[in-house]
């Protein structure tokens, strides 16, 4: 269980996140929605500790994540796998080596540095790629792939971390509709089959409606909605996206985001 209490982060005079409380149970698929700059990315980065909080605490199954340092912090990051909007793969390395980056905490440092991963680790990476329908591309360079394919490689990298959480920061914002659907289906399948908790930042409301059992709305660094998808009515949407979102319900969601 992930418990976030009074979590805040300021950048000089700018408040990115202000005293947020949130509890996520194991196995949930939570969609975090809000406008650009609302604080969604900051929230996920705070959980992985890529960004330091200025107030509050994050506790995972009794472990105080905000207090971790050094090796313990790196061990936590292994458990809280990140997926980024821009994939954050290493372009010049092949696909399988990119996935094996997710194994670095389990493989000795010398083997990692020599890129000499044992067969069992390589097989695990291939298996993860196979689950994402990317095993055929294992030996290609990462920058030879399309955006959707790169994101699936990034998900495979997250999978072999054997994480407890998947933190996906706008995973489909740079993808075409078909690739976006493949990526969201993959996240949903992992959530279902492996029982992994997924926190997924999304611009688009209809995607959240389709995939997320629970939706969290953030506006100007504050939590303004937390509940099932069915609880999202017109007034709530306006609270999350601001008054410009006063548009017909069936309008394209890009406009709302």
């Amino acid at each position: 269980m992930l418990e976030i209490r009074d979590l805040g982060r300021t950048y000089g005079p700018v408040t990115a996140l202000a005293g947020l409380d949130l509890t996520v149970r194991k196995g949930e698929f939570v969609g975090i929605i809000g406008r650009s700059g609302a604080g969604k990315s900051t929230l996920l980065r705070l959980i992985n500790r890529l960004v330091e909080p200025t107030s509050g605490r994050i506790v995972f199954d009794g472990l105080d994540v905000t207090a971790l340092r050094g090796a313990e912090l790196r061990a936590w990051r292994r458990r809280a796998a990140m997926i980024f909007q821009q994939f954050h793969l290493i372009d010049r390395l092949d696909v399988i080596t990119n996935v094996l980056v997710g194994r670095l905490s389990q493989v000795g440092r010398l083997r990692t540095w020599l890129l000499a991963f044992p067969p069992a680790e390589r097989a695990m990476a291939v298996e993860a790629l196979e689950r994402l329908d990317m095993a055929e591309r294992a030996l290609q360079r990462a920058d030879r792939l399309s955006g959707g394919q790169q994101q699936r490689v990034a998900i495979a990298r997250a999978l072999v971390q054997e994480p407890d959480l998947i933190l996906a920061d706008e995973p489909i914002a740079s993808l075409d509709p078909l690739s976006a659907r493949q990526v969201m289906e993959a996240l949903a399948r992992i959530n279902r089959e492996d029982g992994l908790t997924v926190l997924c930042n999304l611009h688009a409301l209809d995607v959240a409606r389709t995939y997320c059992s629970r939706v969290v709305g953030i506006a100007e660094g504050r939590l303004v909605f937390d509940g099932p998808v069915t609880g999202l009515d017109e007034a709530t949407i306006r609270r999350i996206y601001g008054d410009e979102a006063a548009i017909p319900k069936d309008a394209p969601q890009d406009a709302a985001a």
Binding site: I96, P119, V126, E162
Partner: peptide, 22 residues
């Protein structure tokens, strides 16, 4: 996910040549 056993490694190596053993 977990680390595959030796039969599984062999099967993957056969299906995707070059990925597991250079």
């Amino acid at each position: 996910m977990s680390r595959p056993d030796s039969t599984r490694i062999a099967a993957l190596a056969a299906r995707y040549p070059g990925t597991i053993y250079a």
